[in-house]
Design a protein around this nucleic acid. Structure first.
Lengths: 152, 152
DNA sequence: TGTGAAAGGGTTATTAT
DNA sequence: ATAATAACCCTTTCACA
């Protein structure tokens, strides 16, 4: 599927505000409602739009601490990497998991209630995984920018 | 505003799938449509739900490279920190900016088309900012988990 | 607050161009 | 691919418990 200018504008608008109705989009893009409806349906079924979600205020729901952990594994075989990824992805505290190029193996973005909850997570969940060698964690003091929308 | 069990369930459902209609939510939570409608309206106006957005497939829209940059500043006065945050937040490539506790000052999550685009960003935008001392960047090889929903 | 019903608007499918 | 129509569903509001 190839995207034209209208498709790209639709994606850009919807990743900022997915509550925009087809009618509102049709007015912004000077197309008919049916045309917008058809395009959005295609963008969803083709996987350009993976999902639409509500973004919550984490402080209000009691998520007070965000931390980034750099994880080094003991070995780097295909099996070890795969098993670590599988296990670490099961933890609800782990919101993002990336395999990295460079000096450490994985980068984790971890959300917990507070430092105590992070401590429990580290001791009883993360550090206990079989292939973990070392974990180095950095804590977020404040969040200046936090976007889900890509610029393309 | 205090949350009861129903409010928390609503938030958990909507941060996974914001396309759920009030009718569907009312069936899941065994309340009337009007009750759900009223609660969701309150959760939005009270700021629990900050926004609802479409999550795009970044590869499909040409965002091929995610990188994390650790930025060290030359000074740490209130003014220098604030000015850096203000300037770096303007760059569309910077999706997230965190002030960190520990050995570096800021952590940036950067999204670009490819390594060449990252290179241009570093040379002409990030490294040029007045207070930046050093930048250390790690590149993402693969994304194992990427969630926007908190577990609470 | 929660419920039920009524009015209005949006979504969706169908048709034709 | 777009435009127009109609049927349907959902959202929104209101009166009432």
């Amino acid at each position: 599927m190839d995207l034209d200018q209208t498709d790209m504008k639709l994606l850009k608008l919807l990743q900022e505000d997915a509550t925009l109705s087809n009618k509102e989009l049709s007015l912004k893009l000077h197309k008919s409602i049916a045309a917008i409806h058809e395009r959005v349906k295609k963008l969803k079924s083709a996987g350009y739009i993976k999902k639409t979600v509500a973004i919550l205020d984490r402080h209000k729901i009691g998520i007070g601490l965000i931390s980034f952990s750099q994880v080094f594994l003991k070995a780097h075989t295909f099996e070890v990497l795969g098993e670590f990824e599988k296990e670490v992805s099961k933890f609800p505290e782990v919101m993002e998991c990336y395999q990295m190029a460079g000096s450490y193996d994985f980068m984790l973005r971890i959300a917990t209630k507070d430092m105590e909850a992070y401590h429990q997570f580290l001791r009883h969940k993360l550090a206990v995984l079989p292939h973990v060698n070392t974990v180095q964690t950095y804590f977020v003091l404040s969040e200046t920018k936090s976007e889900t929308a890509y610029h393309f």
